[in-house]
Design a protein around this nucleic acid. Structure first.
Lengths: 247, 247
DNA sequence: CGTCGTTTTGATCACAGTCAAGCGCGGTGG
DNA sequence: CCACCGCGCTTGACTGTGATCAAAACGACG
């Protein structure tokens, strides 16, 4: 059938380009979304409490969803990678419950309410793809919440590295042991609930122990996944099933 | 129209019974769900990592979604009240990313995959109701994450009290300043990322300061909402908009 | 009446935050 | 070309919040 054909085409395109959105979702999104917007690294493109769209499609780049305390300190709620759908709306259905900031140059498309509704109304595969992404978001935020509430600094950081390791390898056969981490230690601290000084200390310790190495402050290599898992309190196969989309 | 009529009926029923699921959702759920199951207080009715349904409808009672660290310590990810839809599935679409435990006797109905799909496929109001609940879940977990990562013990606990205060008053004109809190201090600590000893200390301090009073260890009265908000770092009207369903 | 779980309180300790100083690097302007 | 500046990282010293350990009071329940 025609739809089936579109589906296959999109699937292989997704694999080539590293998108993790399944099946025909990518082509559907392209037709439903506003024209893609190019966002420079560091730019805030959605503001906490301000009006926002129900869904943003992050075509390429890294972005963070974060919230700010009254005294100005930030907490990164989630890190979003290329291909992710970001749904920032609060319960009022109008305003964003957090801000969105680009970590790298990004290509972002907003999907407004009526189109977002129609997109999912029409097509079960799209609805399923959205559901499974929402489940992944919820599961990984839960893992991070567990460690924010109960984990040590080393556990929080080891988990962060492992989560990104797995997510970056989502499409591939094996996740990349070395990758570019486009965050300052201050931002890493904002994600892990730590001050930047302590991030530096724990990373130094990881380096000394041969668990990881950092180069140029933004490239990390995980040298001992096993010990990293021990620090993170993670069984890696189980974590993969929990937070990585099937296939 | 007939559907409109059903809708209105369900709406007033929802208001009478304190359900916060909008419009015709309740009647739709009753037809889609498995027979309601009665769960005693303290029982674990979904287990982390085990197979689970995509959605549980908590008809009455309180339940928590929690995750456990390898050393056995728990973190409560979310507290669910009567009328909530709980979606515990991880990204694999099969297993639960956390356990579900009843805090009070509960009435729970599982909604299995095919029915959950059909329920939303057919009816836009239902889809909208699910969306807005999902947004509320996401927003309040974000608020809690912010405070787990960045807040003091007093901030975490003050926020927890305020969140429940607002959620319990969702349907009513004014939220209840006094309510029954069916959790031990250990469980409160599990929600706030604190040990039970420290929960006791902070609550004692709140009592001495006249911010709140506790009776029988499970009834709380918020005596000074303003100072509680100051502790929590919250502007209460904004928080209400962010985490409480409209109307 | 004894047992178990919960709360309270005190004493001590450790992890992580804060403050501060120094270093390396890249960009900018004299 | 070099000097300067700003930003991010590193390291040290000190501090404080909250965890841990321990003991006692209390209440629910068999």
């Amino acid at each position: 059938m025609l739809e089936r054909k579109t589906c296959r085409g999109a699937e292989s395109a997704a694999q080539r380009t590293g998108f993790r959105v399944g099946c025909s979702l990518k082509t559907c999104l392209r037709s439903a979304a506003d024209p893609a917007r190019r966002v420079p690294a560091g730019a805030h493109f959605v503001h906490e409490g301000a009006q926002a769209a129900p869904c943003y499609w992050l075509e390429s780049g890294w972005a963070v969803l974060f919230k700010t305390l009254q005294d100005g300190r930030d907490q990164i709620i989630d890190i979003h990678l290329a291909g992710d759908l970001v749904q920032p709306l609060a319960a009022d259905g109008l305003t964003a419950s957090g801000g969105l900031q680009a970590l790298t140059p990004c290509v972002v498309s907003a999907i407004h309410a009526s189109r977002w509704e129609r997109l999912r109304a029409g097509c079960k595969p799209v609805r399923d793809a959205c559901d499974v992404q929402a489940a992944a978001v919820s599961a990984r935020r839960g893992e991070r919440m567990l460690r924010l509430g109960r984990g040590s600094a080393a556990m929080r950081l080891a988990y962060l590295l492992l989560e990104l390791h797995l997510r970056l390898g989502a499409g591939a056969a094996a996740p990349p042991r070395a990758f570019h981490l486009p965050m300052t230690q201050r931002q890493i601290g904002d994600a892990a609930g730590l001050c930047s000084v302590h991030v530096s200390r724990v990373f130094s310790q990881f380096n000394r122990d041969g668990v990881m190495t950092t180069r140029d402050h933004t490239d990390v290599e995980l040298r001992d996944i096993g010990r990293l898992c021990a620090h993170a309190g993670v069984e890696i196969a189980a974590l993969r099933r929990a937070i990585i989309l099937p296939q």
